[in-house]
């Protein structure tokens, strides 16, 4: 305190200082706002990932997600196999007039089909127009930002580990196959030159390698699925 009126002078000084500084006004329609990476603007649908498990629609507190689908039978992958049935998405709509942006649907989706997009300019003049269909939701998917980078020295995501494992396995199998093929070729030439030599050893080693190589991709996808579930 001290001098009487110093408080008054201080008040004047504060406003004067503020005047000389840059103002904080966001000039929105002229300049787009800088939104934080986890902005909850609108929900985008990555429909290629959707399996119509209906978890999102069931967990939604507002019941604002509408899903229609039908089953299709898929011919067997390999001849003589079993026919499989598959869910095909017909309609995926979110009523943003009801949505309260809780994000539960995004949390529960086991297949990473729903994402937050920072897009926010989707006001409509009629409340009924706020129910957005799958094509619009798919379009919003393009506005979803890349996931933020991991912290330095963070643990590697399990998906990447699993994928690398599968890729390593595949590479190893391919290498083994190539080695076997090379060996077989060598044996062929050797046989051509000297038929009396023992070719049995190469044949037995070739036996287990063949099925292993063909199994590789399926085993890899199995671990990948495990990684996503955990």
């Amino acid at each position: 305190m001290g001098i009487p009126g110093s408080g008054l002078a201080k008040g004047l000084a504060v406003t004067l200082r503020t005047m000389t500084r840059k103002s904080h006004t966001a000039q929105y329609p002229d300049a787009q706002p800088e939104l934080p990476p986890r902005t909850r603007g609108v929900i985008g649908l990555f429909e290629e990932n959707c399996t119509v498990c209906m978890l999102c629609a069931r967990e939604c507190p507002d019941w604002c997600i509408y899903i229609d689908s039908h089953k299709e039978t898929v011919p067997p992958a390999a001849p003589g196999g079993r026919e499989r049935s598959r869910n095909v998405l017909d309609r995926f709509a979110i009523d943003f007039a009801l949505c309260m942006y809780c994000g539960i649907c995004i949390e529960v989706c086991p297949f990473d089909a729903l994402f937050w997009s920072p897009e926010f300019e989707y006001a409509e003049e009629d409340i009924r127009d706020l129910t957005h269909e799958r094509d619009k939701l798919r379009e919003w998917m393009w506005t979803v930002p890349a996931p933020p980078a991991l912290d330095p020295r963070a643990e590697e995501p399990k998906e990447i580990g699993a994928a690398r494992k599968a890729a390593d396995k595949l590479a190893a199998a391919e290498a083994a196959q190539a080695a076997a093929a090379a060996e077989a070729a060598q044996a062929e030439t050797e046989r051509a030159s000297d038929t009396s030599d023992g070719p049995n050893g190469t044949n037995t080693s070739d036996g287990p390698n063949g099925p292993n190589a063909s199994d590789g991709p399926s085993a890899g996808s199995g671990t990948d699925g495990n990684g996503a579930a955990t």
């Binding site: 503020t18 005047m19 103002s23 006004t25 000039q27």
Partner: peptide, 13 residues
């Protein structure tokens, strides 16, 4: 304008 800038705003634009 002065009031706006003293309050960290832009005022009419």
């Amino acid at each position: 304008k002065v009031m706006a800038h003293m309050q960290g705003r832009l005022g009419p634009m």
